[in-house]
């Protein structure tokens, strides 16, 4: 995997989110197109991953889990990066939209992260021989997910929207420290988990399907974040009776 790939994925998903928030006319159709595209790519991923791709030399067919496990954890990390970006934006220029974006990206990230960790655990059983072991990568990932679960809990328990937005943004910045630790844990410490793969350590067919899986779930990352964002916006403007900074124009389909 080229080292710029995570950055490219981040640019794409942030670009799409900004487009969705800034250009009203795209809100009704872009997410539908991407949901359709993502669904088709997901169906194709099942074919590519389970049948087209070769088995791995030693893991054999069990190695096919990489096509879903790694993209899920990537999407989790991308979502948390969107979260910290939204938190910073909120603190420097107060807006209920970035507050809602921070909330939605954190929840989507927890979904992807928890599912990805579960898949990793299933993968570990036949390869490592155990379901779980407290190696640095697994510890740091668990801590990272717990941090964001705590972040969401903090948000849901704080009544005052001003306080919630400001202090959860501070918590988001502090919590984001767990992400580089998770990413680099396999390089800094001895671990059972393998290091990040690069283009040189993956045969071409495996790499291509791996990329395909990442792009498929990237579309769902975008759709989930913007749909969750609309829920968060509706809660802000409705239940909390906040003065809407920017009124949504009934674009939400039912």
């Amino acid at each position: 995997m080229p080292s710029w790939a995570p950055l490219a994925a981040l640019v794409v998903v942030v670009g799409l989110i900004v487009l969705h928030l800034a250009v009203r006319s795209t809100r009704t159709w872009v997410w539908k197109v991407l949901t359709g595209l993502g669904s088709l790519m997901l169906v194709a991923l099942v074919y590519f991953g389970l049948f087209w791709a070769p088995p791995e030399a030693f893991m054999s067919d069990v190695g096919r889990i990489i096509y879903v496990h790694v993209p899920f954890v990537w999407m989790c990390m991308l979502a948390f990066t969107v979260n910290v970006g939204a938190a910073l934006a909120y603190l420097f220029k107060k807006s209920w939209r970035t507050d809602a974006l921070a909330e939605s990206s954190a929840e989507v990230g927890v979904f992807f992260g928890a599912t990805g960790v579960l898949m990793g655990s299933i993968w570990a059983r036949p390869t490592w021989g155990v379901w779980w072991d407290w190696d640095p990568r697994l510890i740091s990932t668990t801590v990272m997910l717990l941090v964001y679960v705590g972040y969401l809990a903090f948000r849901s328990f704080t009544e005052d929207p001003e306080r919630r937005a400001a202090w959860s943004a501070a918590a988001a910045i502090l919590g984001y420290v767990s992400l580089p630790i998770t990413w680099f844990s396999v390089q800094w410490w001895n671990s059972l988990h393998q290091r990040q793969s690069g283009s040189g350590t993956m045969d071409k067919p495996i790499r291509v399907v791996y990329f395909w899986g990442a792009v498929s779930f990237l579309t769902f990352l975008f759709v989930f974040i913007v749909k969750r964002y609309e829920i968060a916006r509706a809660r802000q403007t409705g239940a909390l009776e906040l003065p809407p900074l920017e009124a949504p124009k009934g674009q939400v389909t039912t």
Partner: peptide
């Protein structure tokens, strides 16, 4: 408790 680790290489069988 014996655990086996996999390297970061993913190769097709030869």
């Amino acid at each position: 408790r014996l655990m086996v680790n996999h390297s970061n290489e993913y190769r097709a069988p030869t």
